[in-house]
């Protein structure tokens, strides 16, 4: 299967204020995320998952493909209500989740690449304050690990006054 293109609404920028100095989640995280998804094939995933658990967050492990996770867990949660989820996965997995999230009133609110040589980027607590609606491609390398947040539309989208 050839590759796919992914979009990021850079306009759904995030408030980076409530971050801890350590990479991962802040103490406020339990109130911010309903679920954390971790692709356990990546070495960085171990610390990420550990921090999520320390923050008392539900944490789900995947290995690349999201199908089972989506069908047996996430879609059932989404049937109840939109959720805010954070994750560390490949861009390919994020692409699938983002496309599915759109149908349930959620969207990609934050994404940052995870680089081998650097700490995992901090995950923001609040997704708000969109500045612009420019879209950009979030990358062509589907195996690239990224951290991300998918959040309910209402947390991300600024209603506009006129047409």
């Amino acid at each position: 299967m050839p590759n796919r293109r992914e979009f990021l609404q850079t306009g759904i920028a995030v408030s980076l204020l409530p971050l801890l100095s350590r990479n991962g989640f802040s103490a406020a995280a339990p109130r911010a995320f309903d679920l954390v998804v971790v692709d356990q094939r990546f070495p960085q995933a171990r610390d990420f998952a550990q921090q999520a658990r320390e923050a008392k967050l539900d944490c789900v492990a995947i290995q690349g493909d999201i199908t089972d996770f989506y069908f047996h867990d996430l879609s059932l949660r989404w049937n109840r209500c939109p959720t805010t989820i954070a994750g560390l996965s490949t861009k390919a997995a994020l692409f699938c989740l983002e496309m599915l999230a759109r149908d349930r009133g959620m969207r990609l609110a934050y994404m940052a690449e995870v680089l081998d040589s650097e700490p995992v980027p901090d995950v923001p607590i609040y997704v708000a304050d969109p500045k612009t609606a420019e879209m950009s491609i979030i990358g062509e390398d589907r195996e690239q690990p990224v951290v991300w947040v998918i959040a309910p539309r209402d947390a991300c989208v600024r209603e506009q006054g006129g047409i």
Partner: peptide, 10 residues
Amino acid sequence: DLSIFMIGAR
């Protein structure tokens, strides 16, 4: 299935 999106990585 959605695993087809995982095929074709670099």
